[in-house]
Write a protein that binds this DNA or RNA. Structure first.
Lengths: 371, 371
DNA sequence: GTTAAGGCTGTGAGCGCTCACAGCCACCAT
DNA sequence: ATGGTGGCTGTGAGCGCTCACAGCCTTAAC
C-alpha cells in the first residue's frame, strides 16, 4: 500500500482484512513464541505498522493519537481498529525526544525512608499530588533520596529528561538538590520554605510562623505561664519558623523550656522527658508535630501528669493521629489538600514557562481536648 | 572546527579556550537570563556541542560517555572538560530510543495508598529493592495504583517504554496488571504467588503455607486445643496459603474459629472481637500479619484475657512492630532482604532475556513471649 | 465559471543519541 | 618492503515519533 500513496484511504481499508497483522518483516508468527521469550521490546509495532494496517499514513495515525483533529471519521475508525489489532503503544521516548516533554513529574523525598512511612503528612501530600496530576494525565514518580549518593543519582536521573519537573519535599538546609535543579533549569517547586535558598525558587508553604503564634497565644490566653516547646529539626523551615512564632509570643524563651525533636513519635517522647527534667514546673507544651505530640503525651502520662489539667499540649499538622490520642489533640491544621493542589498548579505553570513565585497558606487552630 | 574534520584533535584543543561555550547558535548569553526564564529545556547542550567544544567528533564523545574505551587520554580529558564546561547531561530519551533501555524499573503497588504507609512490609521491600538496584545504577520508580483508573494509566505508562521492567507488589486475585504486562511483553516479577496466574510469570514468594504450618504446629505442641486464625484477604496469596497451612494442621477447622482481616491493625482488632464472640473458649490465635496481631492483642487485653496465659498469639512477618508489642510477639520471619534481592535479580535476568521462574523462600519461627 | 477557503491527507526533516563501519596511523612481524 | 594488527577516530544510518508544509479534494462565495 505504501507504493501507491495516491490511493483513496477508503479503497485500501478493506485490504487490511485479508492480510494478517504483520509487525516488521521478520516478526510474522512471533505471537505464539515460547514461554521463555526474551521479552525484549524490539519488535513492538510502530506507527508505521499501524499506518500500514489502517491503510493510511504515519501522519494520520499521529493525528489520531494526538486528539484526532482533522481526521475523517473513516480514517479515525480504521486507525483505532489497527491500533487495537496490532496492540500498538506509543513509544514515549521517541515522542519525548521531539516534544521535549515526558508526561511525568518526580516527587522527590529527601528523607531517610522510614520517615516516609511513619509521617502521615507525606502520605497526605503524596495522595493530593497524585490525584491532581492525574487530572492532567501526568504520572507521578516517587523517588526517595535517603543518602547523599541517592541524591546524586536522582539528580542525574531527573535532569536527564526523564521528567518535566519535580516536587521537592522535606528539604533540609543546604540540600544540594535545589541548587542542582536550578542550575539545570528543570522546573520544580519546593514544599515548605527552602531555608536560605528562597531566591528564585517556587515554593508552597503553610504559614508556620503564624500557626505557632496562634497556638502559643492560645495557650497563654488559657492562663498557661510556663509554656515549653518541642521543635522540629532546626535545619527545616518547620523547625525554625515555628520556633520563631513561639518566640514572638513568649519572648526569647527560657532555654530549659526548649527541646528539639525530629518529627518522629519516639523523639517526641524523649524530648518531653528532657523538658520534664529541665523544667518540672512547665504547665504547657507546644509540640511542633502531631506525631511528636502523641509521644509527648505518652511521656507526660507516664510521669503522672494529667493532660490538660497539669500540662496542656498543643500539636501541629492536624493529621489522623490527632484524633486518636487520649485526650484528643488540640492542634494547628495545615491545609494539605490546598498545599498539594498549589504545588501541582505552580509546577505546571512553571513548566509552561511562568515566573517563580511563592505561596503561603494560612493555618487554623483546631481546639480539641488536650489544651 | 566543524569545517575542518581532518584536524588533529590536539591541534584544536586549545582553541576551545578562547571561544565561549556556545550552545546552539541562538543560545549565546542565555546564561544570565532573567529570573523568569521559561526553563524549557530547549537549548540544552547536545553531544554535538560537547564535541565541538572538545574538538572531537560526536562518536568520541559517545565513547567517553559509555565507558571511555578506545579513547586516547587527551581526547578523554578534552571531552570531560567540555562536558563540565557546557553542563552537558545526556538526553535519556534519545539514548533510550536507540538502546531500547531506560535505566529504570517500576515498583508498582496495587493498594490503596494508606496501606503503603501503614504496612512496614512495603517499607522493607522498597528499601531492599532500591538498594540492590542502585548497585546496578538503576533507578526505582514507585507508583501507587490505588484505583482501577490509576492501574490503567500506569499500565499505559509502563508499557510506553518508560521502564525496562516492573516489580509488582500486593496483587490481588485477578489484577489485570499482570495480564496486561504479560501481553505487552514487559519483563516483570511479582512479589508473592500470583493467584490463578502462576503460569508463565516470574515470582518470588515466602513459603506462606509452610510458615503457617510451623506456627500452628507450634501452638498445638504447646498444648493449645482451640486455635483460631485471623487470615488476610482471601484474594491474596498471604490470605489463602496461610489459611491452607493452618488447615493442614487443624483439619478443616471450625468456621467460628476463622476470621478475616485486611492486614491493617484496625482490622486485627475487629476480627479478634468477632472471634471472641463466636468462640469465647479459644486458647490461641494465629494472626496472619504482625500488624493485625498487634490489634488482636489490644482487643484481647481489653477483654481481660491474658496473653499468652489465656490466649496465645502468633503473628506473621516479623517486622518492627513484633518487638514493640507487649508481650513481644512470637511470629514467623519472612526474609525480606532476600525477597527483594531475589526479585531484583530475577527481574534483571528477565530483562536480559532469561526464562520465567519462581522462587520460594523459606520462613522461620521466631519465639518470643506471646506464645 | 472562477476563486477562495478549508478539511483531510501524505511527506520530509529532524529531535539527540548509539552503533557498525571504514579509515587512518603507528607499530610489529615477516 | 610487505603485510598484518590493533588503537583511535570520524561518519552515516536509523531508533519512532511530531510537526510544518504542500498537495490534494470538496464546498462555499461571488
Amino acid at each position: 500500500m505504501r507504493d501507491s500513496p495516491s490511493n483513496h484511504p477508503a479503497a485500501t481499508l478493506d485490504r487490511t482484512e485479508d492480510s494478517p497483522t504483520r509487525l516488521r518483516d521478520s516478526a510474522a508468527g512471533r505471537e505464539n513464541v515460547t514461554v521463555t521469550e526474551p521479552s525484549r521490546l524490539r519488535s513492538r509495532p510502530t506507527m508505521d505498522d499501524v499506518a500500514a494496517v489502517a491503510g493510511v499514513s504515519r501522519g494520520t495515525v499521529s493525528r489520531v493519537l494526538n486528539g484526532g483533529h482533522n481526521v475523517s471519521r473513516q480514517a479515525l475508525a480504521a486507525v483505532e481498529r489497527a491500533i487495537s489489532k496490532t496492540g500498538y503503544v506509543v513509544n514515549q521516548h521517541a515522542r519525548s525526544l521531539v516534544t521535549q516533554r515526558s508526561g511525568s513529574v518526580a516527587f522527590i523525598l529527601s528523607e531517610p525512608q522510614d520517615k516516609l512511612f511513619e509521617d502521615p503528612n507525606f502520605n497526605n501530600l503524596l495522595r493530593g499530588c497524585t490525584q491532581v496530576l492525574a487530572e492532567h494525565d501526568i504520572t507521578l514518580l516517587l523517588t526517595v533520596a535517603a543518602t547523599g549518593e541517592d541524591r546524586q543519582r536522582i539528580g542525574r536521573w531527573v535532569t536527564a529528561g526523564h521528567v518535566d519537573g519535580a516536587l521537592l519535599v522535606s528539604n533540609h538546609l543546604g540540600s544540594p538538590l535545589i541548587a542542582e535543579l536550578k542550575e539545570r533549569g528543570l522546573p520544580f517547586v519546593v514544599c515548605g520554605r527552602p531555608l536560605g535558598q528562597e531566591r528564585d525558587v517556587t515554593y508552597v508553604a503553610s504559614d508556620d510562623r503564624d500557626g505557632a503564634r496562634q497556638m502559643t497565644e492560645y495557650l497563654r490566653s488559657a492562663g498557661r505561664r510556663r509554656i515549653a516547646i518541642i521543635t522540629g529539626p532546626l535545619d527545616t523551615p518547620g523547625g525554625v519558623d515555628r520556633l520563631a512564632g513561639y518566640r514572638e509570643i513568649v519572648g526569647h524563651g527560657d532555654p530549659e523550656l526548649i527541646a528539639t525533636g525530629d518529627y518522629t513519635q519516639a523523639s517526641g517522647e524523649a524530648a518531653m522527658a528532657r523538658l520534664l527534667e529541665q523544667a518540672p514546673d512547665l504547665d504547657a507544651v507546644f509540640v511542633c508535630s502531631d506525631l511528636m505530640a502523641a509521644g509527648a503525651i505518652t511521656t507526660l502520662q507516664r510521669a503522672g501528669k494529667r493532660v490538660p489539667q497539669d500540662v496542656a499540649v498543643g500539636g501541629f499538622d492536624d493529621n489522623k493521629i490527632a484524633t486518636t490520642t487520649k485526650p484528643l489533640l488540640t492542634t494547628i491544621r495545615q491545609p494539605w489538600a490546598r498545599q498539594s493542589a498549589e504545588m501541582v498548579r505552580l509546577l505546571l505553570a512553571h513548566i509552561d514557562g511562568e515566573a517563580h513565585s511563592a505561596v503561603i497558606l494560612p493555618t487554623d487552630l483546631v481546639i480539641r481536648e488536650s489544651a
